[in-house]
Amino acid sequence: MAIPIIPSLLRNNLAELAADNKRLDGRSQFSGRDIEIEIDCLHNAEGSCRVRMGDTIVLAGVKFQIMTPYPDRPTQGGLMTSAEIRPVCGPNWEPGPPSEESIEMGRVVDRGIRESGCIDTNELCILPGEKAWQVILDLFAVSDDGNMFDAFALAAIAALRTAIVPAEKFDVGEDYKLPVNGTPIMASYNKVGGRFVYDANKREELGGDERIHITLGDEGHVHSLQKGLRGVFTAEEFTEIMDNAQIRCQELRQMVHELEGSK
């Protein structure tokens, strides 16, 4: 990503707003932008989802391949996540090999899903020691107006939870729904004007400091954490955003489940 020029005017503006407990787009500290989720939007993917959060738009597509299990885990398949941020999604994204930022996004989303245990790799086995499913989750950014982490994580879990294993296409039995036992959800917070806010937009990201990503499972357990960018934070600050994440993740989980129910 090209290094953007951040005018001190923007930083000052954000600090002044924060002092009055306001944000650039009029939201309160912990409110998110409007969310639209659409599933099964990509007909060549076995599972897919499009998420729109304000002006941030992302796609997630699930594809399957047959792999040979690793010799030490003969009954296990695999999950691979890749976030390739193409320069289509914003003026600062550049072409070329995956950038540090996109690798971080892919890995943080992957950890949340993997560590929640919602995909049991033993259930991906076709023939022990010979054949197993490799689930490939591709994250694709259409429009980057900030907080792509949350948008990617939401699109990812919704796409996985509605994915169909294409067994017929690979001649290994009948198609079936990919078993996913849980709905890990990510909530991200950026330090803007000296305090943490939920779901920062691009301008808040650019004029802000560090960010924290929290992925919570169905029981409210923590499955992945990531602190990014330059900045320090206190235990009190962390407790505050963790409390908010518990509420926010539950709301988003509800949204995903309602969407699946209506399918």
Binding site: K63, S82, P87, V88, D138, F140
Partner: peptide, 17 residues
């Protein structure tokens, strides 16, 4: 100008790049 196919755009996944 850049033309690119998303990895999930086809029946068999396309390796990015």
């Amino acid at each position: 100008v850049r033309y690119n196919m998303a990895p999930f755009s086809t029946s068999d996944r396309i390796r990015p790049g």
